[in-house]
Design a protein around this nucleic acid. Structure first.
Lengths: 288, 288
DNA sequence: CATCAACAAGAGCAGTGATCACACAAAGGA
DNA sequence: TCCTTTGTGTGATCACTGCTCTTGTTGATG
């Protein structure tokens, strides 16, 4: 019964038919992404997508067996885009400038999130119940994480981390925490100490926690212009991890949008330092 | 046309009819909460709720004008429950033990979130597009936030904050950051310094960022037992804010579930220190 | 008692995800 | 070249959703 190119395994890829298929698949994803940006994930309708593409409603199931599969594809793309933005920002820095790299990558991730709020929400917001994340997502998902982890590990390896606050009144790590940090060290931090691994996790969760709070509206009537506060928090968490402060240089924005595929989200208010979000964005993707 | 008790303003409240109304409203919310816990927010169906309650599908609109209104009610309840859990945990501590209070409140918030993952996601996950948060939510929403802010401010007022890491290589606050921290200080931190306000925001976002990462599956294959790491992060962020370390005492759990209404989410694995989440929970509310 | 508002019920509308049988065209071996 | 296989587009159809409208009933209040 099921075949569809050996169950979505794609045929030899060459051939007129395969080209059409790849193209249409891309068009479907593009249109879906457009609707995602306009209405959010719950408002993404397969029928609306096919309607926009001028095809029968049942035709889309030849390309995506279910709505969840379409969402999965969008999730994978979003993860990849965030990862690419982070990697590009990291690469644009002097490798030894760990503080600058942390700052640049953090700013790039936030810039991408602000430019693509619904895709960010799709990935870092509440998971869709009943939808079990397939293995396809874990690879792209770890891309950003790995950029951050590598940064910490390289700094550890080079002895560039300031062991500033260590032993400043805090007790030694609990044995249960040690278990986790050891396992994590084997996974991505071969050179970092246990304390540094734990602090990296803290900085990591703070980074995304702050972005989520901003995009999900929890700063409503708390913080008006998030960017400067966000940048300050990068400084503070960077120091907590032990990074030396960013070197002064021609940074300013640290890779900005990252340029991962789609643009910065529209001209108005783009890089004037205000916030990146337009009024219209606020109108639709708002605050809880 | 529209009346429904002066547009859901409720009548004199007494009277047999009003009692029935209040009771049915509660039953609807309970059943909705049950479905929310089982299927998540997108799976919450008004028709299914009425079906479970043995009433006509159209009857529910007498109580909640739309699906969004039902969700709003659940959101308000969730905010209140989190706020109550945090307040209770805070109250159970010695007022001068700021480190202990920070720890207890953080643990209580996480315990509530782990026990009610879907309600947490409803409130701290991606907002529902097209749904504009009504003013009803901002009051309950600020309840938890205020518990945390008050803690920081009282510690500042009492001079209990260790100015440990201040000036440790970080430049002075940017003027844009100062604007925000000043506005925030007027709002909730009358006694705290600008640096402390900013660090409180960082600790706040880290707290919820870590909980969200845990519940939304971003620790999958990264951290197995989150609780000890979470507790360590409370220690670390507490020190960043300047809290003195928690006093040793009969704490252990720091208010635990908070007891805000519904129970801890089921017996198995409740308080054995493992994690609080059952296998069944993981099966349905999972990882992205 | 009479009146009016709140209520419950059912039919119905437009929309959704998903499945099916059917017709057609490309691909590839005989 | 024919002919089979396979992927593709179509329309009908199902079960379901949120929501509205109309109809009839019942409680509260003058």
């Amino acid at each position: 019964m099921l075949s569809i190119c050996e169950a979505v395994g794609m045929p030899p890829s060459t051939g007129l038919r395969a080209r059409m298929r790849a193209e249409l698949t891309g068009e479907i994803k593009d249109e879906a992404r457009r609707q995602l940006a306009a209405e959010g994930a719950p408002g993404l309708s397969l029928r609306a997508v096919t309607r926009s593409l001028g095809m029968a409603s049942s035709a889309i199931y030849r390309y995506f067996p279910s709505r969840d599969d379409l969402l999965t594809a969008l999730i994978v793309d979003a993860y990849d885009a965030i990862g690419a933005a982070a990697e590009e920002a990291d690469a644009s820095c002097s490798p030894g400038d760990y503080g600058g790299r942390w700052r640049a990558v953090g700013l790039a991730i936030r810039a991408w999130a602000v430019a693509h709020p619904h895709e960010y929400a799709l990935v870092y917001g509440s998971p869709v119940p009943g939808y079990r994340a397939p293995e396809d997502t874990v690879g792209p998902a770890s891309r950003v994480t790995f950029v951050l982890a590598r940064m910490v590990d390289e700094a550890s390896r080079d002895g560039a981390l300031l062991e500033s606050a260590e032993g400043l009144g805090l007790p030694a790590l609990d044995v249960a925490v040690l278990d986790e940090s050891r396992r994590l060290a084997d996974l991505a931090f071969p050179h970092a100490s246990d304390e540094v691994v734990v602090r990296a996790v803290i900085a990591w969760t703070q980074l995304f926690g702050m972005i989520s709070f901003e995009l999900f509206g929890h700063f409503h009537s708390v913080i008006e212009f998030v960017e400067p506060v966000f940048e300050r928090s990068l400084l503070e968490t960077g120091r907590m991890v032990g990074f030396p402060p960013p070197r002064r240089g021609p940074q300013e924005g640290g890779g900005a949008d990252g340029g991962a595929g789609r643009g910065t989200g529209g001209g108005p208010g783009g890089a004037d330092g205000s916030d990146g979000r337009t009024e219209a964005d606020d109108e639709r993707f708002y605050l809880i």
